[in-house]
Amino acid sequence: MEIERPEIASPHEIDVAEASRIEKLRESCQQPIPDPDSWLDEEISRNVLVTTVDYVLDWARSRSIFPLMFGLACCAFEMIGTAASRFDISRFGMDIFRWSPRQADLMIVAGTLTWKMAPAVKLVYDQMAEPKWVIAMGACAISGGTFRESYSVVPGINRIIPVDVYVPGCPPRPEGLIYGIRQIHGKIGKETIKRA
């Protein structure tokens, strides 16, 4: 019996494929993605029938956010600090940082994003199930920071994925990140099941 051998790409082929992925993404991401703002007028158009359901659902959702473990650079340490006992992210029901994007609904992009890493970030974001939210943490994630003009750094993660909350700082203190998370709670509170 003949065994069917899977075609294994040579290291060079893998490199070329990776390069083409990066270049394609780079070409398609020259303009920033507008921040999602459809939730802003949600409150006005609310239907009386679903408001109570919305209230309960949003309350439940915002109190059990599962953040994704996603530290890219030095901001990650502030994120770890936020999660640890002193600042204690568990107070907001965010007990566990998930390793799998399929189990997470909040992506805290903490740190400098390079073009080589960008396809992975895009993939992880696409793997997350709706509803999902994104926090851009730190100057580099917001705009590229000091590396904005650099050859290798993405000038702001909103080129790749839509961002809900920006937390400025270099790096932001855990209090800043917690404030950003509270903003996410506020945003979730305005969402309705009609759209979701």
Partner: peptide, 20 residues
């Protein structure tokens, strides 16, 4: 001998002083 940090097909060598 191939690129380590940047991707295959990147044009130029960025740490040279005449880059850009």
């Amino acid at each position: 001998l191939k690129r380590l940090l940047l991707w295959e097909g990147f044009v130029g060598h960025p740490l040279r002083r005449d880059y850009l």
